[in-house]
Amino acid sequence: MANNKTIDQFSNTGITKFAVNKVILDEINDRVISLIQRKKKLLTSKNKISLENFHNSVAVKNLNEIRMYLYAQLNKQDWILDKMFELFNSQIKLILGDELAVQKKVNLSIQLPNDNSSILPMHSDFFSGESIYQLNLWLPLVSVNKTSSMFYFLPKDSIKMINEIKKNSVSDLNIIFKKNYKKIKWLNLKKGEAAVFSPNLLHGNVLNKEKNTRFSLNLRVKNLYSPYNHIYGNEKKLGSFYRPYNLKAMTIFNINNSFSFD
C-alpha cells in the first residue's frame, strides 16, 4: 500500500516525503559532528556541537571552509553515497528502477539563520542541462520548517513560469518568483523524514528567518537508460556529471563487446 501511495503521490505532484531509518540517520549526524569537531580552529564556541544551533558555534566567514571540508570528508570512499542509497533505496526502486546513473558526489548544504551568502534562487535543475528524468534525494539532518527548508512550485505552476522564462530571454527570475510567491509550497520535514522530488519543479531557498540552522544533504539520481540532454557540448551527461551505479551484467556485457546495428 505504501508503495502505491508513493507512486501515486510522485506521479501527480513530483514530490513525496517519507520516514527514514533513524539508526543510519544518527550515524550520519554523528559523523558530521565528529568531523566538525576536528575543525576547532574555525569554531567560535567550545560547547558541544549541535547541528540545529550550529550558528552559535561558527562565524559566517568560516562557514564555506567548514562546508568544503565536510563535503570532501563525507564523500571520501563513497561512504555518504552508500548511506544515502541505504536510506532512499525503496523510493529509488519505485520511481527509477535498479540500474542507475548518479551524480558523482553528495552535496551538503548549511543554512545559518539570516545568512544571505547561502541562498539558492529559484531554478529547475534542467536549466543547466541536467536530465528531466532526474530524481533529487533530499535529507535534512535537522527539522526544517518554512524558510529553513526549501520551497517548490507544483508542476502546473512550474510549467507556466518556465514558459514565461523561455518566452522572454532577458526575464528576471526574481520578479517571476515574487509574482508567484503565493503559490509556493514549503517542504516542511521533521528530523527523521526525507523527501524525493523531481527537480524539474521550480525550487530553491530563501533567507533562513527561522531560529535554527539547516544541515541537509542532496543527491541527484536517474535511471541509467532514461534520456540525457541532447545539447552539444553540455557536460551534464553520463561520464562527466553522472556515473553509473549498480550496473547490470547485460550493460557490462555490451560495454565490453561492440555489437551494433550499423
Binding site: 536549466f127 522564462i165 532577458v170 527570475l173
Partner: peptide, 14 residues
C-alpha cells in the same frame, strides 16, 4: 549558471 534555453540571458539579468 545561465539556462540552456536558446538565447536566454535570464540568469544574467537576475
Amino acid at each position: 549558471n545561465e539556462t540552456v534555453f536558446k538565447n536566454s540571458y535570464s540568469q544574467l539579468i537576475t
